[in-house]
Design a binder for these strands. Sequence first.
RNA 1: GUGGCUGUAGCUCAAUGGUAGAGCACUGGACUGUGACUCCAGGUGUUGCCGGUUCGAGCCCGGUCAGCCACCCCA
Length: 438
Amino acid sequence: MGEKIPPVKGTRDVLPTDTYLKKDDPWVRTGHLQLIEQAARDIFPLYGYREARTPILERTALFARGIGDATDIVSKEMYTFEDRDGTQVTMRPEGTASLVRAYVEHAVQQQGGETKWWYAGPMFRHERQQRGRYRQFTQIGVEALGSTGPRIDAEQIEMLDRWLRFLAVPFEMHVNTLGDARCRPAYRTALQEYLRANADRLCEDCKKRTETNPIRVLDCKNPRCQEVAAGAPRMESYLCDECKAHFDGLRESLTRLGVAHLVDPKLVRGLDYYTRTTYEAIATSGLGSQSTVAGGGRYDGLVRELGGGDVAGIGFAAGVERLALLVAQAGREKEERPVVFLAPLGAAEEARADVLAKHLREAGIAAEVSFRGSNAANQLKRANALGARFALVVGELELSSGRAKLKELRTGEQHEVDLARLPDEVKRLAQNTPPSAA
RNA sequence: GUGGCUGUAGCUCAAUGGUAGAGCACUGGACUGUGACUCCAGGUGUUGCCGGUUCGAGCCCGGUCAGCCACCCCA
């Protein structure tokens, strides 16, 4: 026997049932992911977003330039390697850069108007894993390109709000503004000067952050740093007129659309490309310290940075595994179970059952046949374990008479049916008695 | 990348340094053709891995790997 080959660290299997999963595994089933994805697939097109699929593998330069060299993601978390022809390639750590590359590559700007895309797929970051953080994880995200005003920001935030509320996830929507290329530098400088003057009261990390990413200091969990942060200059008072108008417009729109939100001046996003609007949906319970369930913002300079025109954009990305943890806790899941379980008692009956199953499936009814050649009791036990709604025992009597008893497992009630018309009979009975909630 | 905690059967867990066990689940039977309740029977382990201490290690020690939690960062 060969040795067992373990999975790569930080990667996980998602399986349809959890009877073989460990109890303290904060993990989820395929059904949880499917519920989340299906909801996105249903809701996003209502807002005009259409699906785009881009490669998982991209040139390293795309992320280095798009996300920012100095960010943690680019500087220490990317899965990067040299392709056989010498090209430096990276397994994507996020989706926005790729979508913008595709937008530029195909000169989508020439079509005019807004471009709204959504995407779903695996992302890779080499981080130490913990609850809600994995090296391969899944994001569902959207990007809206070609519009500068705050109304589209509000529409997108309302869409995220609707999606999360449909999923019954407990969350709060936080919004903030980071200013733009004109007013952010002035604020950054003022903040840095303030932080340097108070460096003796900052933690070691924040002393570094003062130079690399001073806005992050505002978000530090260290109580002493928070005291310093409390007295720091505020972005609000440095916003240029345009940025201030944009933020005011966003909040008005959100209120008009009925989106509950709170302004969070400490909301800072880690990627370099964000300007003006930033927002995050933060879980209020159920997750550990990785409680951001979706985050996004405006990136008005990114398209130009990646070789395109002067095109504004805004998008968000949601962590599907984090959502799934919450959906699992709420007990919500897309279920797939057989409607009819066929239990044949001998070789001739098995042959007939196989064909009966085919007829049921042709009629759109989920059917499973036993392949185990066991007695009726054990096959019924199997039908019950699978959660089937009906069981049909096929024996000599049924073969000769062409009639059988269709047993409803929840109630134990048996209905006499004509095998030649089995799909119709099942449909008729399924209508009369609603499926059990269990 | 740093720190803490934890690794025993598919799962949940026992086992004063002295023969590795139970419950659940699974499979079969009681019931030669009717599940969920009941009863009976069956099997499984390189005690994560490597080394050390010891007459003897699942237990003690060191290392390592993995998982979880937190820092950091982010989805």
